[in-house]
Write a protein that binds this DNA or RNA. Structure first.
Length: 830
RNA sequence: GCCCAGGUGGCGGAACUGGUAGACGCAAGGGACUUAAAAUCCCUCGAUGCUUCGCAUUGUGCGGGUUCGAUUCCCGCCCUGGGCACCA
């Protein structure tokens, strides 16, 4: 594997030389420079799990090409890298191997940093940060207390998602199909006290600004819009038939209120028990509530459940009609959404329709679509569309759109309702019952209640002298030296919060800290963040479509409102790259199809690995890893190496100026050179078509080989050959940085390839001398003509009609119509 | 069920705003070099047919349509991947 092979280039020596060169010269260090145009390129930072995997290789290679390309385009490129260093795996590893999470984490960072450097990635390492250091999380704690002051952080006891395996709570976004995003184990509901970020306060803005994110994939925006789930409607109070109080419902269809024939409430609804009292339904209701609660726990994530309910024994009154409506507890009504109660309009809601049929409840049509009148007795399904109102009192004959507003206004005027918008989005629960995270900077005083830790006392440092339990229970909960403290207000005894923050909090603002990672006077240095933000291009996996990307958008808006940032959105353009798969499925240890980047780099070098991961598939698609394909990429680089290295003297001696008079072979190569610059520039400029860009360079290389082969009759002008070689090196340099830098130097350049500007192409040189025009007869290709570019239509028509093959296929029939597309084709219809 | 992507040779993938389908690479086959192998270089490579050095027919998931011309646009369907799924 590592045996010296004289027929292959020595990538090991070359890559080490340039890696060292870039690191010792800090070639990619940047600073704030208002005189220059900035470009912020960011890839999602990794969790230091131990080693780099192929997904990282792909992600960071793509990013590096863009960074290097933009640098060559003259931009002041910030390209930082750091570590998402808090998280459960560190804690679990620590428990298992009897070490400390910090030790484990920093060792992993060390190793992985070495791996990234081996790949030749052009980071400004001076901006490196690790989120588990107090220098980082102290600012996060400051944000927390500032948000608390603004009412954007609050505490509540609620039903949360508990992961038994991870021994902690998860936010809604972190529950995927009913299972934990991290360990795939089922999540259980549990009543708990916890801290919440009021992301719902930004729901409207987060939704509205989706329209401004034109540089994001539509797919991701759709997912975010769905997740936020805005519904505009009304809240209406239905007074209880007996006793005081009312049942408040939320509906998006106030226009159907006259068609309500019963009410449905969630089994957990606080009024359920009260309604049944003294009606003889108590036992039935109790039994139903208990049974649905248990079923809910047992239920599989995507299981379809039959609609079921029980009459509570109570009634309420429709404020519009005065009708007495029975109240049912129903298993499909969610306590967490809206008000936990709905008015049931079976004629116009499919769920209510099914429920009504099952329990023989009346169906009243109040929205009539154009055409056949609806018959409640024979309807097969609810009519959920719009129409004209019928049997709706004074609102009859309005169309449903107008009726929505009229009915809502009426309810508001009469004082039993109002317009309301609800969201599917829930507040972000950030309390984690584990150790390896940023401590929540709050404390509890018997006298003064809940208190934020004052700014002067920050950071609340995570203690390191801790013992871990096998159970995974956080040692902080029982560490007296940590939780015992004094109240900043009264000086009395107080207890610290022992939960830590969700690690998604750290990744919600790291991109801003990169602008000023060493700044100590505050979290963000105004001048630096104002210059560098927003991120111009963000690159990462689509699995964060909601999670990290939504949280980051929220945090950006919060930090803006706290006065730290001036931007509304963190990431202007987003590229979501596909997975790296092997043999048709995701790489996994159990499948035994894992490819280790280290082995690949040992065997072929970083340049080859980079080249193949760019060449094998377009970035947003899944990449099927193929060992033979890697060989192909390696062969290509060897071909270039050999060509240049075998002709060093000639290339060295070649003049740089292209002579004005060139023979055919030289013109041909010169033309191909400029066509390639045109093609590659087009493919890289905001498009990320790395695979076709590489193809184009391969074509140029093939042309160069063919035209300079010994047996050719015409010698290529040395200046032209040299220009072709240099073009190949320059165009390839963002993708294959080590080898191109080396060869550039060997052909006699003093200055480094890194600082070189991207080449411009000469349109005149790129222009073809001769074009092939296809001649079709009735749409079928029958002949080809070689003509000069821009030959006019008349001439093309004449040439085509005079062509031997064309004459043959026309069989003497007259041309009915001749379509001429200049520089492309001629189609003759007979 | 609903909403997005996507379906092109043996494989990964090209094809600009409708204009030569299959660039580039991989695999395969044949040849050159070599004592031999590796490496390298050259040639062939969608399918079918024929009177086989060339030509014809056919071909981009399936069925229609628009057009002089459709992988590309429109309608209907099938399959694969992803997301959402009682959200009132």
């Amino acid at each position: 594997m590592t045996t010296p092979d004289t027929t292959r280039y020595d990538f090991q020596a070359i890559e080490e030389k340039w890696r060292t060169h870039w690191l010792t010269n800090k070639s990619f260090k940047v600073s704030t420079d208002p005189g220059r145009k900035k470009y912020y390129l960011l890839e999602m930072f990794p969790y230091p799990s131990g080693r780099i995997h192929m997904g990282h290789v792909r992600n960071y290679t793509i990013g590096d090409v863009v960074a290097r390309y933009q640098r060559m385009r003259g931009m002041n490129v910030i390209h930082p890298m750091g570590w998402d260093a808090f998280g459960l795996p560190a804690e679990n590893a620590a428990i298992k191997h009897n070490t400390h999470p910090a030790k484990w984490t920093f060792e992993n960072i060390d190793y992985m940093k070495g791996q990234l450097q081996r790949m030749g990635l052009s980071y400004d390492w001076d901006r490196e940060l690790a989120t588990c250091t107090p220098e980082y999380y102290r600012w996060e704690q400051l944000f927390f207390t500032k948000m608390y002051e603004k009412g954007l952080v609050y505490q509540k006891v609620t039903t949360v998602n508990w992961c038994e395996t991870c021994q902690t709570v998860l936010a809604n976004e972190q529950v995927i199909d009913g299972t934990c995003w991290r360990c795939d184990q089922p999540v259980m509901p549990r009543e708990m006290n916890g801290w919440f970020f009021k992301i719902t306060a930004y729901a409207d803005e987060l939704l509205a600004d989706c329209d401004r994110l034109t540089g994001w994939p539509e797919k991701v925006l759709t997912m975010q819009r769905n997740w936020i789930g805005k519904s505009v409607g009304a809240e209406i109070n239905f007074p209880l038939a007996s006793g005081a109080g009312a049942l408040t419902i939320f509906t998006t269809r106030p226009d159907t209120v006259f068609g309500a024939t019963f009410m449905s409430v969630a089994p957990e609804h606080p009024l359920v028990v009260e309604l049944s009292r003294g009606t003889g339904q108590e036992a039935a209701v109790r039994e139903f509530v208990e049974r649905t609660r248990q079923e809910k726990q047992r239920r599989k994530p995507d299981e379809e459940v039959e609609k079921e309910g029980v009459f509570t024994g109570g009634y309420c009154v429709n404020p519009f009609t005065g009708d007495k409506l029975p109240v049912y507890a129903a298993n499909f009504v969610l306590m967490e959404y809206g008000t936990g109660a709905v008015m049931a309009v079976p004629a116009h809601d499919q769920r209510d329709f099914e429920f009504a049929r099952k329990y023989q409840l009346p169906i009243t049509v109040v929205v009539q679509p154009a055409g056949e009148p609806l018959d409640p007795g024979t309807m097969a399904a609810a009519h959920e569309g719009s129409g004209t109102l019928v049997a709706s009192g004074s609102f009859t004959s309005l169309d449903s759109q107008a009726a929505k507003k009229a009915i809502t206004d009426h309810a508001a005027k009469e004082g039993f309702g109002q317009g309301r918008t609800t969201y599917r989005l829930r507040d972000w629960g950030i309390s984690r019952q584990r150790y390896w995270g940023a401590p929540i900077p709050m404390l509890y005083c018997e006298q003064c209640g809940v208190q934020p830790v004052p700014e002067k006392d920050l950071p609340v440092t995570l203690p390191t002298d801790v013992q871990f339990e096998k159970s995974g229970k956080s040692p902080l909960h029982t560490l007296e030296s940590f939780y015992r403290t004094t109240c900043p207000k009264c000086g009395g005894e107080a207890r610290r919060e022992t939960d830590t923050m969700d690690t998604f909090v750290e990744s919600s603002w790291y991109f801003a800290r990169y602008a000023c990672p060493q700044f100590t006077d505050g979290p963000l240095e105004k001048q630096a963040v104002d210059y560098w933000l927003p991120v111009d291009q963000y690159i990462g996996g689509v699995e964060h479509a909601i999670l990290h990307l939504l949280y980051s958008r929220f945090f950006t808006k919060v930090l803006r409102d706290l006065g730290y940032l001036t931007v509304d959105e963190p990431f202007t353009n987003l590229l979501t790259q596909g997975m790296v798969i092997k043999d048709g499925s995701k790489m996994s240890k159990s499948k035994g199809n894992v490819v280790d980047p280290n082995e690949l780099i040992d065997r072929y070098g970083a340049d080859t690995v980079r080249l193949f991961s760019l060449f094998a598939a377009p970035p947003e698609r899944d990449l099927d890893w193929n060992d033979q394909g890697v060989e192909g990429a390696y062969r290509f680089l060897n071909r270039i190496y050999r060509f240049v290295n075998d002709r060093l003297a000639t290339l060295h001696a070649a003049p740089t100026a292209i002579p004005t008079e060139l023979n055919e072979a030289s013109r041909s190569l010169h033309r191909k050179t400029h066509q390639t610059i045109r093609k590659v520039s087009g493919d890289l400029d905001g498009k990320f078509h790395f695979n076709t860009a590489i193809s184009a360079v391969m074509e140029l290389t093939n042309t160069l080989f063919t035209l300079t082969a010994e047996e050719t009759k015409e010698a290529v002008e040395p200046a032209v050959a040299r220009a072709a070689v240099e073009t190949i090196l320059i165009l390839l340099s963002p993708m294959v940085p080590h080898l191109t830098a080396e060869l550039w130097q060997r052909i006699g350049h003093g200055e480094s390839l890194d600082g070189l500007p991207w080449p411009a192409f000469d349109p005149a040189a790129a222009k073809e001398e001769e074009l092939t025009i296809v001649v079709q007869i009735c749409g079928k290709v029958r002949s080809r003509l070689a003509v000069a570019p821009d030959t006019d239509e008349e001439q093309l028509r004449a040439l085509a009609l005079a062509d031997d093959k064309v004459q043959k296929f026309m069989e003497g029939k007259p041309a009915r119509k001749v379509i001429v597309v200049p520089n492309k084709l001629i189609n003759i219809v007979v």
